[in-house]
Amino acid sequence: MLFLLRMLAIGVNFVFAGIVGLVICLCRPFNPDNSRLCARLYSIPTLWILRWRLNTNIDSLTHHQRSCIIICNHQSNYDLYVLGRIVPPRTVSVGKKSLKWVPFFGQQYWLAGNMLLDRSNPMRSRKALHATTDALKNRDTSIWIFPEGTRNHGKGLLPFKKGAFQMALAAGVPILPVCVSSYPRHIDVNRWRGSEIRMRSLAPIPTAGLNHQDIPQLMKDCREQMQACIDEMDRQVTQ
């Protein structure tokens, strides 16, 4: 019963947040700070409905003053609500082109200035890469990317794809890892007492002076740092 009530409440908020967010984006289309505002509309009420408690240590994320590539582990559809609470100002994300057709949410996502990637069309993908490079270099905008490319369902980091690292090198900006504990292992939406979810942001990793030959090692270093942080948080959550 509690599960059904919560899903209903989340659904109502999803529609409400989509409509209000769409109005905000129509008033100031493609403003890079729209994403932060819209993410809060989805996240804050849903976290309250689910009674999930965020334990955060994200000073390196909140105090970072220049453009960067933010990379984060991608675990479930609930990431919208979990991560929406910590999206920093002037930060957009990269998503699939198909998101554009999700009622309310998709149109808002596009008007919020997020990048839509058509993976089936290499030419359009290259144009999107150029657009992200321009945003990083000239528009004081950071880009949030899930380097795994798909959800890992809390079972450990999947292999990283190169896109995020290529963007960082092309723009000459640092990579800032954000780690979230493996919350899909512990959540029970039908339980009144909510779960604890831990988040940590790591120190920015500079890319100045690196070239494409350095990407494999850069990917390996980022993945190892993130996995170690996630493992530590998982141990703390289960204690």
Rank of each mutant, 00 (worst) to 15 (best):
Q65H: 13
Q65K: 14
Q65G: 12
Q65S: 13
Q65V: 04
R66Q: 15
R66S: 14
S67D: 06
S67C: 11
S67M: 07
S67H: 07
S67R: 00
C68D: 08
C68T: 12
I69G: 09
I69Y: 04
I69E: 12
I70R: 02
I70F: 08
I70K: 03
I70N: 02
I71D: 07
I71R: 06
I71N: 04
C72D: 01
N73Q: 06
N73D: 05
H74G: 01
H74Y: 01
H74I: 00
Q75A: 05
Q75L: 00
Q75F: 02
Q75D: 01
S76P: 06
S76G: 08
S76W: 05
N77K: 04
Y78P: 06
Y78E: 10
Y78I: 08
Y78H: 10
Y78R: 00
Y78L: 15
Y78F: 15
D79G: 03
D79N: 05
D79R: 04
D79H: 07
D79A: 05
D79M: 02
L80E: 05
Y81G: 02
V82E: 08
L83W: 07
L83D: 03
G84I: 04
G84M: 05
G84Y: 03
G84R: 00
G84Q: 03
G84A: 04
R85V: 02
R85H: 09
R85N: 10
R85F: 04
I86Q: 00
I86R: 02
I86S: 06
I86P: 00
I86C: 02
I86D: 03
V87S: 02
V87I: 15
V87D: 08
V87H: 09
P88V: 07
P88H: 05
P88W: 09
P88C: 03
P88T: 02
P88I: 06
P88R: 00
P88L: 06
P89K: 14
P89W: 08
P89F: 04
R90W: 12
R90V: 00
T91P: 10
T91D: 09
T91Q: 09
V92G: 07
V92H: 01
V92I: 15
S93H: 00
S93W: 02
S93I: 05
V94D: 11
G95A: 15
G95E: 10
G95T: 13
G95W: 10
K96P: 11
K97H: 13
K97R: 14
K97S: 13
K97T: 09
S98V: 08
S98T: 14
S98A: 12
S98Q: 15
S98K: 01
L99D: 09
L99Q: 10
K100V: 15
K100C: 07
K100M: 13
W101V: 02
V102Q: 09
V102T: 15
V102R: 08
P103E: 11
P103L: 13
P103F: 13
P103Y: 12
F104Q: 06
F104G: 03
F104C: 15
F104M: 14
F105Y: 15
F105S: 03
F105H: 06
G106F: 12
G106H: 12
G106M: 11
